[in-house]
Amino acid sequence: MDLLAITGLLLSIFLTLAILSFLFDDNPIYKFAEHLFMGVGIGIGTIEIYYGVFQPKLILPLLEEHRLLSIFPLLLLVLLFAKVTRKHQDWARIPIAFIVAAFAGVKLTGEANGRLLEQVRASMPDLQQLYETSGWWDWDNGGAGVISGLVLVLGLCACLLHFYFSARHNRPMRTISRIGILTLMLSFGASFGFTVMGRISLAIGRAEALLGLDQPNTLIQLGSMEVHRMTATRWMTVGTLLLIIVSIAALRRRTAPDSSTS
């Protein structure tokens, strides 16, 4: 294992613990990691945009294929960058209007076709066919059956009626609206549980990385010593953790007299 790989491993452990140090309190080490994340993230975003959009869609067609039509987006791009100058920033309204209109037009038909019609179509189950394949309720098939089909349709209708604010909510409407609220609550609870489990999986992944469980436990060369990768990772984690704790304590001690005098 060369020096660069060891540095990378040590750095990833440090950055993981630096972000997790926010659980204790907002501190300079967390802020350092946060700003590093922003800088690297924006840099990666810019590079991927350059190689994913600018190069194949603008630069190559202009310079290599000599495609004259590509002059128009270049011109619009120049107008967009006029936004950074105070004097000519009004010119940027033209490309902004173009972007907004293009995506509004696509969204308008796309949403109507893809979301609205498809969602309505998918929410009309064939109850006869459901009864023939799964009966009323099939435990072996994830609870599929007529009951599930009816809950889906009635739940959807109740939720839609709950959001129908322009209708007067009289007694029958209130009952339907309450069913809608209950369906929404079930959905929000399930989504919350699902999100928590996703985040916990990520936390487990980071814990595995800190304990060296994410890579094969091979023998690695550390200077003149040969140690198992897992052992080396765990020592690095402990060392980095101690370093972060000592650094936070030292920084707090240094700032404490300043704050007391002010």
Binding site: L116, C159, S187, S191
Partner: peptide, 26 residues
Amino acid sequence: WTLDVPNNAARRAIFIGAALGAISTG
């Protein structure tokens, strides 16, 4: 079942509402 049926019913209702909103805003 909770993720597939009631969750889907509520999500579809929200999607339909959002689609109507996107169309009117567009």
